[in-house]
Write a protein that binds this DNA or RNA. Structure first.
Lengths: 232, 232
DNA sequence: GTCTCCGCTTGATCTAGATCAAGTCTTTTG
DNA sequence: CAAAAGACTTGATCTAGATCAAGCGGAGAC
């Protein structure tokens, strides 16, 4: 793979502290690939041959069962996905598809496991990353089990506002139909849910959201750091 | 703590491969405590001062938000809980309470982190354990987002039957009200759901379940290893 | 430009599941 | 033993959200 990508991969927490020699060894077996939109990169149940790193574009992690389908997460640059399957050498639990044109680094899983054994800084970083992933899913689980769909949307909007810098107006970073799936609701209901937040000062114009008074919306949404804080 | 407990703790995957000296150092700062039923051991949001190991009894991990409450998991002997919070030195995301009289080992989190740094076998075991935990929650998430409550109950029964040895008749290991919460439904609905499974050969007598024809129930439940396999 | 497709909205209905309200049965307690 | 509490069940009702069925409107194709 082109060395031009090395710095941005190296900058990831996962790779930042490992020995240079090990980093180079890891990337020696890796390669970069460009994918068009809507390509299924990974199917759940397949063996986990590669650790993936998204350099550009975005990836939808989803799952199917009995003709139903749900989005579980979205991966944006620059970050890795399916680390747990790689480490455990177990089948993928989720499928992955590109949402747009995306550039992906594929690192052979066996190399990751080998260097994990050899580099304790890398091992430590993996532990931190996995713990982080685990906690994120627990938060998602709480969001889903404790809140109604209207509350989930309200809190999503508050998180997204914060994430985009806190301005009164901001953009959704999802297609609405996928946001619906992420929030575990139908597109129709999402549409109605936006209307349901109007009394709390939320207005929608395409993918642009305006929040008139954050405090007002918070009063309804009751955001909680143990569910809504992305870090920690 | 009494050395009598050492072997059963040592037998856990998490501690099996670490150096003896480190194992002893870890337990030197640990202590065992007995708790009566219904004691809240941990409140979400508190700092994670101890890694917990359940020696006997059982523990409910749950969460509260806005006057609602949900069970997220049950911990049974012998295993650990809240490893991720310990490792990240971050607040607990879940509360924990004893369901019955329970004996718990408390290992100071700072010791766990120190020995994690010093013992690469221990580090590796932690990674495996965290990856396992992560994958379990993903499975739970899929169960919740892709299935109806009746399907969740049917698959739970199939898992439980397998877990107890596969006999046509077996015991629930939950109080029904808590099973309801774990399956994200109300006790009333659980009661009705059991009736709803009668056409598939499920009969209930107290906490004793009988499955007349496993194939018949499977035909309805459509169990999937990527959701229902406890290991892998 | 017009046409077509597709994502989104809106309204009308339907359904799974929640809630409310008794009642039964078992277990605990005095 | 009787009383009381608590778990579970059952029925009646209510509600959030899903589904079905049109429309609307913007973006790309020709």
């Amino acid at each position: 793979m082109p060395e031009a990508h090395y710095p941005e991969i190296r900058a990831l927490n996962l790779f930042a502290e490992m020995a240079e020699a090990n980093f180079l060894a890891l990337l020696r077996g890796a390669y970069v690939q460009n994918f068009p939109p809507q390509i299924e990169l990974i199917g759940e149940g397949e063996p986990s041959d590669f650790l993936h790193v998204v350099l550009s574009g975005s990836i939808d992690l989803f799952s199917r069962w009995n003709d139903r389908e749900t989005s579980l997460a979205t991966v944006r640059p620059v970050s890795t996905f399916i680390l747990a399957a790689t480490i455990k050498n177990a089948p993928y639990l989720m499928s992955a598809r590109t949402l747009e044109k995306s550039r992906i680094v594929l690192i052979p899983s066996k190399d990751v496991r080998a260097i994990f054994d050899a580099d304790s800084n890398f091992a430590r970083a993996i532990v931190t990353e996995l713990a982080q992933c685990y906690r994120s899913v627990i938060k998602a689980q709480k969001d889903l089990k404790l809140r109604t769909s209207l509350e989930r949307l309200a809190n999503y909007l508050l998180r997204q506002q914060k994430h985009t810098g806190g301005g009164a107006t901001f953009e959704l970073d999802f297609e609405k139909r996928r946001l619906a799936s992420v929030l575990s609701m139908t597109p129709e209901n999402l549409s109605r849910a936006f209307k349901g937040l109007k009394p709390y000062g939320v207005t929608v114009d395409g993918t642009t959201i305006a929040i008139a008074d954050r405090a007002d919306l918070e009063h309804f949404a009751k955001p909680n750091p143990l569910i809504d804080d992305v870090t920690s």
